[in-house]
Structure formats: structure tokens, C-alpha cells
């Protein structure tokens, strides 16, 4: 996909993502401090604005870095910094591509997840956003074509998010709840799933609607 089209898809997906802010706030209120809704809505808004400023010929890496910067500064928090660092790490895998393909997307998501794991000192099963990112990266790597790969990534993330309910939170504020965190769905993982779903919808939208 050309970066200019990627820019349009990203903006559309993020505009949709804001619609999930209340869901994310409620999930986060049960497990943390409830600021994830604001982080996502202000963050998505800031990223959309940054993407609007990008030139047509921006590379995919420049696009990812612009997203990272805007997201980090919109509503600063540990979550925002982790996501920004993930996007930055992802951008480094893209070199100067202006037409990223499925393999680029897989590498990008994997590198973002790895950086979040590294910075956050977290691993799969700790009940964090990572639990949804990694199955999606697996699916993007394995998929036979880009559309099938994204569909599989959404399915994988959906299953992973459902599975977080049985897990105990081991990182961040949510870990203070200890056993009481079991039974609750992880807000970070859910946020990533919603982003993927919004991305899927934005891709499938007729080109004429992509504005």
C-alpha cells in the first residue's frame, strides 16, 4: 500500500477508534485509574492532526514517527510513552519504504511489541496490551495475503482479549489488584483489538469514502 493511502486509512481508523473511548475508560476504571479512554481519544485526535500535516511523499517510517510523537505528547502517561516507543521501534524496521507490504506490517507490529515488552519489562500472559499485539504479529507473518492476514490478526487479537479475563494482571497499576484482577478484561489489549478492527473497517471501506 502506498504511504499516502496508509495515511488515509490510519486517520479513518483512528477517528473510529475514538468511539470506543468510553468502553476503554470503563474497563480501565475497573483495573486501573480509568485514564485510558482519555489517552486514546486525545491521542487519536492528535495523531489524526499530525497525519494531516504530513506531505504526500512521506515515508512509512516518517508516518509512524509522526504518530508516535503526537501520541506521546497528547496526554502523557506511561501507556502513551510505551505506545510511542513501540511505534518508534516499529518505524526503524521500515527504512525508507513508501510502499509497505504485508511483511513490513508484520515486522512493524513485532518490533513494536518487542519494544513494549523490553521497556515495560513485561511478557505474554502478564495481562497487558502485549497479549493482543503478539498474536496479531503472528497472524500478519503467517497470512497468505494481506487481507487474510489482517482478518486473522483480528481473530487472534479477539481470542487473546477474551483470554485476558482469566489472567492476573502482573504489570502496572492493575497488578495492585492481584487476584481481584482475574475475571476482568484487559483494557490495553482491548484498545489494540479495537484499533485493529477499526483498521480492518477502514481498509474495507470504498475508496470514495476514504477521506
Amino acid at each position: 500500500m502506498r504511504t499516502a493511502d496508509l495515511n488515509v486509512v490510519a486517520r479513518r481508523a483512528l477517528a473510529d477508534l475514538v468511539g470506543y473511548a468510553d468502553e476503554l475508560r470503563d474497563l480501565d476504571q475497573a483495573l486501573g485509574d480509568g485514564d485510558l479512554g482519555v489517552t486514546i481519544s486525545l491521542g487519536a485526535g492528535a495523531v489524526i492532526e499530525a497525519l494531516e500535516q504530513l506531505p504526500e511523499d512521506a515515508t512509512a517510517a516518517e508516518l509512524a514517527k509522526a504518530c508516535a510523537k503526537a501520541f506521546a505528547n497528547a496526554n502523557p502517561s506511561t501507556m502513551a510513552a510505551l505506545v510511542a516507543g513501540g511505534l518508534l521501534a516499529g518505524s526503524k524496521t521500515l527504512v525508507d519504504s513508501t510502499e509497505p507490504n504485508q511483511a513490513d506490517a508484520a515486522r512493524f507490529v513485532r518490533a513494536a511489541g518487542d519494544n513494549i515488552a523490553l521497556r515495560g519489562k513485561t511478557q505474554l500472559g502478564d495481562k497487558t496490551i502485549l497479549d493482543a499485539i503478539m498474536p496479531a504479529a503472528d497472524a500478519l507473518e503467517a497470512g497468505s495475503d494481506p487481507v487474510a492476514a489482517l482478518d486473522a490478526a483480528v481473530v487472534g487479537a479477539e481470542r487473546a482479549v477474551a483470554d485476558t479475563k482469566a489472567l492476573q494482571s502482573r504489570r502496572g497499576r492493575a497488578s495492585w489488584l492481584q487476584e481481584r484482577s482475574i475475571g476482568l478484561q484487559d483494557p490495553g489489549a482491548t484498545a489494540f483489538l479495537r484499533l485493529l478492527q477499526c483498521w480492518q473497517a477502514a481498509l474495507h471501506a470504498a475508496p470514495a469514502e476514504r477521506n
Binding site: 508516535a68 510523537k69 510513552a81 510511542a84 516507543g85
Partner: peptide, 18 residues
């Protein structure tokens, strides 16, 4: 210390973006 390392490391990424 763990908390300081987490936040300073995150700041490294934010600084790199600038």
C-alpha cells in the same frame, strides 16, 4: 531502581523522536 529505569528508558524513546 525499577521504576526509575522504566521511566527514563521511556524518555529515551521520547527524546529520540525529537
Amino acid at each position: 531502581y525499577g521504576g526509575d529505569v522504566l521511566n527514563f528508558d521511556l524518555a529515551c524513546d521520547l527524546a529520540e523522536l525529537e
